[in-house]
Write a protein that binds this DNA or RNA. Structure first.
Lengths: 191, 191
DNA sequence: CCTACCGATCGGTAGG
DNA sequence: CCTACCGATCGGTAGG
């Protein structure tokens, strides 16, 4: 028997799993307790509220995407190289933290106003990384001059954000293949 | 005073609005009643269950997208022309029936098993329209020969399905501009 | 479409 | 982390 008490981190992780699968409003504190082998009421020794759990999961998502963008920029290189790192980094965040990413992408609007605002700001900052990279690539001639950085950043992120909806990590397409296909499609669209 | 009794269609429309905004589980029958100026319990003279309402909204979404694809194919023409009609038609469905489209795209997995299965089949059939058009375009040389119909159909649909998340019909970008940008981006990716 | 309910479940608390 | 609850709200029904 290795039964141990759950940590706060365990609770947040399980919450991410259920929020990703069933949605915030589709998950009850009793569901979450069952997932961890305890009663719903016992969760309140770890967290202050259900909303609190959503905040933690979504903000972890914001941190992960933000860190990925920072890392992609920090290495420098051409706009084309930065964009490839942004794309690969986004894929890694989604696939290595699928529940967190899904909750971040689909349940952020269930946050109360102040938290939602902060998350939307973080998301806009992340998007700006893509926009800026497209602008730089257009400016230096790496990308077509009919590329519209604002719109195309949204288009590219639309493709990336949808990955959690269809990609099966245990399926026939490898992560490397996924990244290659993304690079080809986006590359062709921009050059 | 033009206060009239609500029809079943009114109830379904209002349900689509709330399901799109707050999600299926975030909407109560009392919320929906309030939206229509009646009590939650009164809704049961129009529908059998809450799930029933979700089924109606989601299946209407499936019908709309299906009809759009059928129309795009029926007109014939080159793969390139069909694809443009598929894209424009998808945009029209999303923007002319936003609540239905959002509910179809985001709440279909809240359906019970049998209905969800049917909707997923319809969605796959719709996706096959895109895949087939890409295949035809590769075969006749309209599109690059490194286009992967299966993957690229998903990528294109990812861009189209995300439109409800960011496009503001009252904003600075017109629908015509949106369609032009989509055509340019997707066209560049495929040719 | 309302009145008047039903049992079940919700998020959460007090006290250990 | 459990026991023992709380008031509020849930989807839904009977009967008009």
């Amino acid at each position: 028997m290795v039964t141990t008490r759950n940590s706060r981190a365990d609770v947040v992780t399980a919450a991410g799993r259920l929020f990703a699968e069933r949605g915030y409003h589709g998950t009850s504190m009793r569901d979450l307790g069952k997932e961890l082998g305890l009663l719903g009421s016992s969760l309140y020794s770890h967290v202050e509220s259900k909303q609190d759990l959503l905040v933690e999961v979504v903000e972890e998502g914001a941190r992960l995407f933000g860190a990925s963008a920072d890392a992609a920029l920090a290495q420098g290189g051409s706009a084309d190289e930065v964009l490839v790192r942004l794309i690969d980094g986004h894929v890694d965040v989604v696939l290595d933290n699928r529940d967190v990413a899904r909750t971040f992408l689909n349940e952020a609007n269930m946050l109360d106003d102040s938290h939602r605002r902060r998350v939307l700001d973080a998301r806009d900052h992340y998007e700006e990384t893509f926009r800026g990279t497209l602008r730089a690539g257009v400016a230096d001639g790496s990308f077509r001059d009919d590329v519209d950085p604002k719109t195309d950043a949204i288009f590219i992120l639309s493709v990336l954000n949808a990955i959690e909806r269809w990609f099966d990590p245990g399926g026939s397409m490898s992560v490397a293949k996924l990244k290659a296909e993304l690079g080809r499609f986006v590359g062709a669209a921009l050059t």
